[in-house]
């Protein structure tokens, strides 16, 4: 048992370490951005003094290592700094006007909640649906049901998110105005109004993710059913349901959990394109906008959030599969 705890602790430590490395990668990547923000914001009339002053107020005069730890310390406590596009630099122009500074965290908070809401809505529908379909398709392998599910999921996987999205918009919004094609979500809306406006983006994500998840579940179960102990049980004359419940299911848990975690991680990325199509106010949209504006603190924060969600989900899959599969506890 203690060995198990050590093993899980190892994985957790590895996860934290990965996060640390990823933060370095993200920071270093932004460091490598060509050009100077201070120069860019002041344009052609920049005097060396003004450039120096702005660089100073952004902390750009410090070494990269110093800035990295300052940034990391802030990020851990939820302070991602001030968005560059929101800085006014009024003090540089001799003005002292009071202006509310919008920090990256302020921008992120409502959007983060929105993105989680969108992903959660999609996941709540997609996970049970795809697991059920995947297991059925595996059990009745080669049947008409399997073929239809196979072709359907292949089509859905192969379609880019924006294809599914525009198809839905065309039929459910433009031709028959049932759902809004632009998902304006804000805090004033009550829960069901939010759900109503989230239907189309969530449906898009569900369709794409369900296909992925279903196929992976199917493959996992088929792999399992073709293993020797299942064949042995079958040859012994064990009833079909007993094979599934007693022999297959305990071993299927790990791959299925893996599949779910992987696809939830996939949702993290899928969200970006879908949010852009539906103008959904989430982190993905903010990210794409920030990339275009070269708003470094925001880009860093968004990258970190997406990476953290991704690592967390993969870590969960890892730990749970160790817990459910005793063989993994003894590394060769």
């Amino acid at each position: 048992m203690s060995r198990l705890i050590v093993m899980i602790a190892q994985r957790l430590a590895l996860g934290v370490f990965t996060m640390f490395i990823v933060s370095i990668v993200i920071f270093a990547a932004i460091e490598a951005l060509p050009g100077d923000f201070a120069q860019a914001i002041l344009g052609q009339g920049a005097t060396p003094e003004a450039v120096a002053a702005i660089r100073d107020s952004l902390g750009m005069d410090r070494t990269a290592v110093e800035r990295y730890f300052a940034w990391l310390g802030g990020a851990v406590t939820g302070d991602f700094g001030v968005s560059f596009s929101q800085l006014s630099f009024q003090s540089q122009y001799g003005q002292t006007g009071e202006r509310d500074v919008v920090t990256v965290a302020d921008q992120l908070r409502p959007r983060f909640a929105n993105t989680i809401f969108l992903a959660a809505t999609a996941a709540v529908v997609a996970v049970p649906l795809s697991l059920g379909l995947g297991i059925l398709a595996a059990l009745y392998r080669g049947s008409v049901l399997d073929r239809i599910a196979n072709i359907g999921s292949l089509t859905s996987i192969s379609s880019p998110e924006f294809f599914v999205a525009y198809l839905l918009i065309l039929f459910l919004s433009a031709a028959n105005p049932i759902f809004p094609s632009i998902s304006k979500i804000h805090a004033d809306l009550d829960f069901w109004q939010q759900v109503y406006r989230t239907v189309l983006p969530a449906l898009t994500l569900t369709l794409v993710v369900t296909a992925h998840m279903m196929r992976m579940t199917r493959v996992a179960i088929i792999n399992l059913l073709s293993s020797q102990y299942i064949e042995m049980a079958r040859l012994k004359g064990v009833p079909r349901w007993r094979i599934i419940v007693h022999h297959a299911l305990p071993n299927a848990l790990a791959p299925i959990i893996n599949v779910v975690a992987l696809n939830l991680a996939y949702l993290v990325t899928g969200v970006v394109v879908v949010e852009v199509v539906f103008v959904y106010p989430g982190v993905g949209q903010l990210f794409v906008d920030a990339v275009k504006l070269r708003d470094m603190p925001t880009v860093q924060a968004c990258c970190l959030i997406f990476a953290a969600a991704y690592i967390l989900l993969n870590l969960t899959a890892d730990v749970v599969s160790v817990l459910t599969n005793p063989r993994l506890r003894h590394p060769r």
């Binding site: 993290v268 990325t269 970006v272 880009v299 990258c303």
Partner: peptide
């Protein structure tokens, strides 16, 4: 590779392309 894969592909691609131009 773990580190590279720890960041979702689309996100990382967006980041790198902004940097490289």
């Amino acid at each position: 590779i773990d580190v590279l894969m720890a960041i979702p592909q689309l996100i990382f691609a967006l980041l790198l392309i902004t940097i490289l131009g």
